[in-house]
Amino acid sequence: MLVALSDTFGSDLARGIGAILLYAIVGLVLMFIGFYAIDFTTPGKLSELVRSGLPNAVIITASGMLSMAFIIVVAIWSSSSDLAEGLILSLVYGLIGIIAQVVAVRLLEFVTRIDVRSTIESEKFAPASFVVASAHVALGLVVAVAIS
């Protein structure tokens, strides 16, 4: 049995692979920006605290990255089917989502009066880290849905 491919199969495949790579680059750039936004707005140097194995810093950083991923995935998913427009929309929606996420989490931390610095710098597990982590994930989902 012979399978016939369309005349445009090769070019469609190449265009699809190119789109995947470009969206992956946009997603990676947004994840870096998201991490540095969390790091910049959180007391202490998160990457150093995580490398030191401080449990609360790991929990809060991981939840922050997960929340950023929700926002970025939905920004990409909601983008236009036109590649150039889709990439631009993904980048813009992703950046706005990251800003909204960071502001919302910091406001929630202010309202709950959690001392984030002492929480993330503690060598012992602090239950408050789950409150901050939950805020990251919950607000990341809210912002992601707002994008869609």
Rank of each mutant, 00 (worst) to 15 (best):
A138W: 05
A24L: 14
A75R: 01
V58T: 01
N56A: 00
V102E: 12
E48S: 03
I38E: 05
L87V: 06
A19D: 13
I76W: 02
S11W: 09
V116M: 12
S90M: 09
G16M: 08
F32H: 10
E123T: 12
V143K: 01
I147E: 00
G64C: 05
A62Q: 06
G27Y: 02
V132A: 08
G53S: 07
A144W: 03
V58D: 00
A69R: 01
S81K: 07
L22T: 05
P55R: 04
R106K: 12
F40D: 12
I59Q: 05
L66Q: 02
V50H: 01
S118R: 11
T8P: 09
S63T: 05
G140E: 03
S129N: 14
P43R: 08
S80M: 07
M65E: 03
T119C: 15
S81Q: 07
V105D: 11
L66G: 04
I88G: 07
T112A: 13
A14C: 09
A19L: 13
T61S: 14
T42L: 03
K124F: 05
I88L: 15
E109C: 14
V58M: 01
V145H: 01
I38W: 03
L89N: 07
K124V: 08
F70C: 02
K124A: 14
A4H: 11
L66E: 02
E123S: 15
L22H: 07
A146T: 07
S81E: 10
F35D: 03
D7T: 06
S81A: 10
V102D: 14
L49K: 00
V105I: 10
W77G: 01
G10T: 06
A128V: 11
V50T: 02
I71S: 00
I72F: 04
V58Q: 00
R117F: 15
V74H: 00
L21Y: 12
V3M: 12
I72A: 02
S80N: 10
F70M: 04
V26Y: 14
T61P: 03
K45L: 14
T119Y: 03
G27T: 01
S78G: 09
L91D: 02
L46K: 00
V137E: 05
E109H: 07
A128P: 07
L30N: 07
I98L: 14
S6R: 09
N56T: 01
I17M: 12
M68L: 08
G86I: 02
Q101S: 11
D12T: 07
I20C: 14
I33G: 08
K45W: 15
G44D: 03
V116H: 06
S90N: 09
V137S: 04
V116Y: 06
T8D: 14
A104F: 15
Q101G: 07
T42F: 01
V26A: 13
A62K: 06
L46I: 03
L87N: 05
S90Y: 12
L91M: 11
V102Q: 11
D7C: 10
A19G: 12
G16V: 07
V131I: 15
V137M: 09
G27H: 02
G44H: 00
